Computed example of a mutant assay.
Amino acid sequence: MPLTIAEIAQALGTTAHGNTALVVRRPAEPGSAGPDDLALAMSKAYADALRASQARAAIVWDGADLDDLGLAAAITVPRARLAMAQLTQAFDPRPTGTGIHPTAVIDPAAQIGADVHIGPFVVIGPGVALGDGCRIDSHVSIGDRATLGAGCWLGAGTRIGRDCHLGARVITQPNAVIGSDGFSYVTTDLANEERAIKTMGRTQLTPPQDGTRHRIHSLGGVVLGDDVEVGSNSTIDAGTIRPTRIGRGTKIDNQVHIGHNCVVGEDCIVCGHVGLAGSGTFGDRCVFAGKVGTKDHVTLGNDVVMGGGANVYSDFPDGAFVMGSPALDMPDHRAQQKALRGLPQLQKIVADLRARLTNPGEAG
């Protein structure tokens, strides 16, 4: 998608230098940038690679010397990652076009908004309502009474369950599943997990009289706020009675599982392989690093950051930074790790003391 340097600078809300009418066709890393590319060299660390490239234009750091870098045009940015977000949006060749593919199966009771694209082999159930400008890629299924706000984009193979409600501009990557049944079962008598917790392991468990698991059905659906994004192969279970809720602007990575009845706040980041057990409540702007796991019914405040692999078994207040298993506040976790690293030396000291007490004549 060809753009001038001036157009790119306007999209980034920043300043262009040199020949602003110069046209570039795509962004590229400095080491491989050609004469028609826009090299991304947002720090001085890329200066040598940029000089060695064929690039005539680049996004550069504040204070860069265009003549020294051999550039005809440049754009300066104060915050590199924010510039990347705006730049990739400007160059993104998002598919366009509207219309309904002849292989799509749409219930007559469904309501389809204006300027909608519905791809091959899509199935849309009764009572579904699609807002204006939605894009539904191939092999998507949308269950009974589900609703999508304006501008949603469902990637190929997405499954939207019955009674799920998506706000405006929600994006799902291929094979995301929204509204699958929750993992919720009950036995006639106390189940093994209930007895284990009740006895805290003090009593050996014996087979229950009846271990049959009876399904607790999921009637509550899922509600996704505006601008939520859900990654490939991620699953969000429907609530039991009330809906599972994901707040506005929250971004969910690939291969994430969010259990039934969870409430996730606004503008959260949920990284890959995170698993949130049912009925957790999480505040706004929380960060779940990769492989974070939480137990059921935990409550976290706003702005909680969980380091990679943290296992959260208890509640934490606003602004906590936690790591480890079980997760602890960062100062406590660091102190614990420091103590563990000192154990070999401590064992040696204890062994020496024991030897001296056993053989006092050898001391000294």
Rank of each mutant, 00 (worst) to 15 (best):
Pro2Phe: 08
Leu3Ala: 12
Leu3Arg: 10
Ala6Leu: 04
Glu7Asn: 09
Ile8Gly: 12
Ala9Phe: 02
Ala9Lys: 00
Leu12His: 01
Asn19Met: 05
Ala21Asp: 08
Val23Trp: 00
Arg26Leu: 06
Ser32Gln: 01
Ala33Gln: 05
Pro35Val: 00
Asp36Ser: 15
Asp36Met: 15
Asp37Tyr: 03
Met42Val: 12
Ser43Val: 07
Gln54Trp: 10
Ala55Val: 07
Ala57Tyr: 03
Ala58Ser: 02
Val60Met: 01
Asp67Trp: 00
Ala73Gln: 12
Ala73Met: 14
Thr76Pro: 00
Val77Lys: 03
Met84Tyr: 00
Met84Asn: 07
Ala85Cys: 02
Gln86Phe: 03
Arg94Trp: 03
Arg94Met: 06
Thr96Asn: 05
Ala104Lys: 10
Ile106Tyr: 14
Val122Trp: 08
Ile124Ala: 10
Gly125Lys: 14
Gly127Trp: 03
Ala129His: 02
Ala129Gly: 07
Leu130Met: 02
Leu130Pro: 06
Arg135Tyr: 03
Ile136Arg: 04
Asp137Val: 13
Ser138His: 06
Asp144Glu: 13
Asp144Thr: 10
Asp144Ala: 11
Ala146Glu: 01
Gly149Cys: 14
Cys152His: 14
Ala156Tyr: 11
Ile160Arg: 13
Ile160Lys: 13
Cys164Val: 05
Leu166Ile: 06
Ser180Asn: 08
Gly182Ser: 10
Phe183Val: 10
Thr187Ser: 11
Thr188Phe: 06
Ala191Gly: 09
Asn192Ala: 06
Glu193Leu: 05
Glu194Asn: 12
Glu194Arg: 04
Lys198Ser: 13
Gln204Arg: 12
Gly211Cys: 11
Arg215Val: 13
Leu219Val: 15
Gly220Asn: 15
Leu224Val: 04
Gly225Cys: 03
Asp227Pro: 04
Val228Thr: 03
Glu229Ile: 05
Val230Thr: 12
Ser234Pro: 15
Ser234Asn: 14
Thr235Arg: 12
Ala238Asp: 10
Gly239Arg: 06
Ile241Asn: 09
Pro243Arg: 00
Arg245Val: 12
Gly249Tyr: 10
Lys251Asp: 07
Ile252Tyr: 02
Gln255Lys: 09
Gly259Met: 04
Gly259Gln: 03
Cys262Asn: 13
Cys262Arg: 07
Val263Lys: 10
Val263Ser: 12
Val264Ala: 04
Glu266Cys: 13
Asp267His: 15
Val270Asn: 11
His273Arg: 12
His273Val: 09
His273Asp: 12
Leu276Trp: 11
Ala277His: 03
Gly278Thr: 00
Ser279Ala: 03
Ser279Glu: 06
Gly280Asn: 06
Phe282Trp: 08
Ala289Ser: 05
Lys291Arg: 06
Asp296Leu: 09
Thr299Asn: 07
Leu300Ser: 05
Asn302Thr: 09
Asp303Cys: 08
Met306Asp: 15
Gly308Asn: 09
Tyr313Lys: 13
Ser314Ile: 13
Gly319Val: 01
Val322Gln: 01
Met323Asn: 08
Pro326Arg: 07
Leu328Phe: 11
His333Val: 10
Ala335Gln: 08
Gln337Cys: 09
Leu343Arg: 08
Ile349Pro: 13
Ile349His: 14
Leu353Phe: 00
Leu353Ala: 07
Arg354Cys: 08
Ala355His: 14
Ala355Ser: 13
Leu357Val: 02
Thr358Glu: 09
Asn359Glu: 00
Pro360His: 04
